[in-house]
């Protein structure tokens, strides 16, 4: 048996249902009895039929985990968002400015941001994520140090900013100057990595709804990131999750904040265009 066949066998073994059906459920997500979130939507045209329905990862979790996200008090991810808000209002750096000094009330100024990021930035001439924009402000306007990608304060800030868009449909632009980044992200999405030779698509396009060992495979959508995982009891960034996935294919991975993951974030976000923003979500 050559290595390729072996890895196909391994992949099939990984995807085999172990505990019966793992299909997404039909529950409805309403946060704080107020914010309705679209969790099942028609696929965008650019998906070209790759998915027949776009489904939030929320549907692949059990009722207890789902309930934690439906009330801000029960949602431990909101601890991070609250901390993000505290940082927002605190002056930092040589200019003695806080985020609020320029951007005012985040509930107003940051509304809709998560839904359209990553986004091509004319001034910087490149694709930027929310964390990159925050660091741009910190280094260029506040005279503060940049945060490491997906580090504690960066992820708390991203969670707070994301929470201002909850319920709004994901709508990242993939045309114009964003197109080459999107193409690069798409190429990464379909590239098989590691000794297991698995691409993102092997699990999250071809096998969502199936079990990987005892876990349900979702479509790997990013509308809920940053996400609080019960597994490590903290907020996790999309790039860190990408890294974990590629590591699990037994590959050398890209790093959070790398050009590869920035492009991949855009591509994966575009697969979820139409899904309501859930950030910060709760997953297992």
């Amino acid at each position: 048996m050559n290595f390729k066949t072996l890895s196909v066998v391994a992949a099939v073994a990984l995807a085999m249902p172990a505990l019966g059906s793992a299909d997404p459920d039909d529950d409805t997500l309403i946060i704080n009895e107020e914010i309705e979130v679209a969790t099942k939507v028609e696929p965008a045209e650019h998906l070209d039929g790759a998915l027949y329905e776009v489904i939030s990862g929320w549907h692949f979790r059990n009722d207890d985990t789902q309930a934690m996200e439906m009330d801000d008090f029960d949602n431990p991810a909101m601890l991070g968002a609250e901390n993000g808000m505290a940082i927002w209002n605190t002056a930092d750096g040589s200019e003695g400015k806080s985020c609020a000094d320029c951007h005012g009330d985040a509930a107003e100024s940051m509304k809709g941001v998560k839904a359209t990021y990553p986004k091509f930035d004319e001034k910087a001439g490149t694709l930027m994520t929310v964390q990159m924009k925050v660091n741009e402000c910190r280094t260029e306007r506040m005279g503060a140090e940049a945060w490491s990608y997906d580090a504690g304060p960066a992820i708390d800030m991203e969670a707070m900013i994301g929470s201002q868009s909850r319920g709004m449909p994901m709508n990242v632009a993939i045309d114009g100057p964003a197109e080459p980044f999107w193409e690069k992200g798409k190429e990464i999405y379909y590239t098989r990595y590691g000794q297991l030779e698995l691409s993102c698509a092997s699990c999250h396009e071809e096998n969502y709804g199936n079990m990987i060992r005892a876990d349900h495979l979702s479509q790997g959508q990013t509308n809920g990131f940053p996400t609080y995982r019960l597994k490590n009891a903290k907020l996790n960034g999309a790039h860190s999750r990408f890294k974990g996935c590629i590591r699990d294919t037994r590959a050398e991975t890209f790093n959070p904040g790398s050009d590869e993951f920035i492009a991949l974030e855009l591509y994966v976000a575009s697969r979820g265009n139409g899904l309501g923003v859930e950030s910060p979500s709760v997953r297992n």
Binding site: R213, A214, D215, G244, D248, N284
Partner: peptide
């Protein structure tokens, strides 16, 4: 208690 699929 289930053992997670990915890095669990």
């Amino acid at each position: 208690v289930t053992i997670g699929g990915c890095g669990g």
